[in-house]
């Protein structure tokens, strides 16, 4: 952020004459990129078209528009001989999981990120090192032992258990991201707050935290989406239909390979993806800067 003088942003470089490339090269680049991206484009196009058609020609051309595929919204769907729980229960559970995860993750990582970025204490280097190490550590390899831990704590088959595990897997990364934001807050501003009469904690939440709001927004969106999309932990640690989430709901419909109802599947899939699409459209720029891997500064 710019606290100094009002700097007018440099004009965006749009003119291709600055980088004089022959038009031919640019056109070829476009053609290659478009060609490479076509499968992706068709995949998502199909997802939409299939969800509103009763039958498709050549896999992708709708024959007749229908909302029958969206019937899961008002009735409980039967797959094979099994009746699935209501989609709204699954949606509520997913929301609970994603929301809870976001709150836990943001609170924990903002506290830890600040301590690691700005405070001096014995073992700081060690902790920083471990954050980065954990960030890289492939936690899924530990799933068996995590199962045992959850079982011991009595958290197996609860959304709470999954929420905590997911939070643990995510906090090294979000802590690392938010630490980067804290690093960028000028020391002068924090010093000012101390001189103006704040103690460390007050300076933290009155002055420093407002300055890392973009970072907090980023990790919030990030952890919400991670919770919303989670599948493996739910699939492994949740059995009760009462705790069904959208991911497992969808997986149960896919489950029977022989008789795939693509219409129903794509409609449910699209329904499940809505918040993701929403966030993607509105935040893709900041998400890109976040690198998804969280290594803001490689």
């Amino acid at each position: 952020m710019d606290i100094g003088s009002n700097v007018t942003p440099a004009p965006k470089m749009k003119s291709p004459t600055l980088l004089r490339k022959s038009h031919r090269k640019i056109i070829i680049s476009y053609i290659i990129l478009t060609f490479l991206s076509l499968p992706l484009f068709f995949m998502y196009l199909w997802l939409f078209l299939s969800s509103i058609s009763s039958e498709m020609v050549a896999g992708i051309i709708p024959k007749q528009i229908t909302f029958e595929n969206w019937r899961f919204l008002w009735e409980n769907v039967e797959v094979g001989s099994r009746q699935l729980p209501s989609i709204w229960l699954a949606t509520w559970n997913t929301l609970l999981l994603a929301g809870g995860l976001t709150i836990i993750e943001v609170i924990i990582s903002v506290m830890a990120g600040y301590a690691l970025s700005r405070m001096e204490f014995p073992g700081r280097t060690f902790f920083l090192r471990s954050v980065i190490l954990l960030h890289a550590f492939p936690s899924v390899a530990l799933l068996i032992a995590v199962f045992y831990v959850l079982d011991t704590l009595g958290l197996i088959d609860t959304l709470w258990g999954v929420m905590l595990v997911k939070a643990a897997l995510q906090i090294p990364m979000s802590t690392y991201i938010i630490k980067g934001f804290f690093d960028d807050v000028p020391w002068d501003v924090e010093w000012s707050a101390l001189i103006d009469g704040c103690n460390r904690i007050k300076a933290w939440y009155q002055v420093v935290i407002p300055l890392v709001k973009p970072g907090i927004a980023a990790i919030s969106i990030f952890s919400f989406l991670a919770g919303w999309s989670e599948f493996l932990l739910l699939y492994t640690f949740i059995f009760d239909d009462q705790n069904i989430t959208l991911a497992t709901y969808l997986q149960k419909i896919i489950g029977d390979f022989q008789m795939v109802d693509y219409g129903l599947l794509t409609a449910a899939g699209l329904f499940y993806m809505l918040p993701v699409i929403f966030f993607f459209i509105f935040t893709q720029k900041s998400l890109m800067q976040m690198n998804m891997g969280g290594n803001k500064r490689v």
Binding site: G4, W191, L194, I195, N199, L211
Partner: peptide, 20 residues
């Protein structure tokens, strides 16, 4: 003595205003 208890005022090179 903590900075807050010293009753001092300070102007920084960057001014360090609270942008929000």
């Amino acid at each position: 003595l903590e900075p807050k208890d010293r009753n001092i005022g300070m102007v920084f090179q960057s001014y360090a205003l609270y942008p929000h």
